[in-house]
Design a protein around this nucleic acid. Structure first.
Length: 137
DNA sequence: GCCAACGTTGGC
DNA sequence: GCCAACGTTGGC
């Protein structure tokens, strides 16, 4: 089981919409490093869902329901996407400020390279985020 | 709204 | 193959 984090601007695709949809194809990733991570995802992997720009917080946990396949929205080039489904909405969103002040979480890629839209998260980091959210995994 | 960081593009 | 210029992202 691996752990990841994906980002979305609430104005583009918010968590609430994701929950409403019940499942979505995570398309549109056009970054080689992010592509590597997308392709490393396995069914059942847990994914933190982060709201960038607005909110700047982790708002929910998703899981991979379909591993990487060709991104149908890519008109040119070799790009991949995965299918994600919501698992739980965090009782309390975990803000970037909280992440930055936590000794374990400040090592997250999110802090170092905030622009990477798909990134790996370690198991301890994942669990710590859930602790901050005051929910049970 | 500004600016820093990053990735990509294109000229040489 | 290098590097400057540009566009985009995202935190502040």
């Amino acid at each position: 089981m691996n752990y990841w984090l994906v980002k979305s601007e609430p104005g583009t695709y918010a968590w609430a919409q994701f929950v409403k949809d019940g499942r979505t194809a995570w398309t549109g990733v056009r970054n080689y490093q992010a592509r590597i991570y997308l392709r490393a995802m396995k069914r059942g992997d847990r994914v933190l869902f982060y709201h960038s720009n607005e909110g700047k917080n982790v708002v929910g946990v998703a899981q991979v329901v379909k591993p990487a396949y060709p991104d149908p929205t890519a008109e040119a080039g070799d790009w991949s996407c995965v299918d994600l489904a919501p698992v739980e909405t965090l009782a309390k969103p975990v803000g970037l400020d909280a992440i930055k002040t936590d000794s374990l979480l400040q090592a997250m890629v999110l802090v170092k390279n905030s622009r990477l839209s798909v990134q790996p998260v370690t198991e301890p980091q994942f669990n710590r985020v859930l602790e901050h959210a005051a929910t049970k995994a």
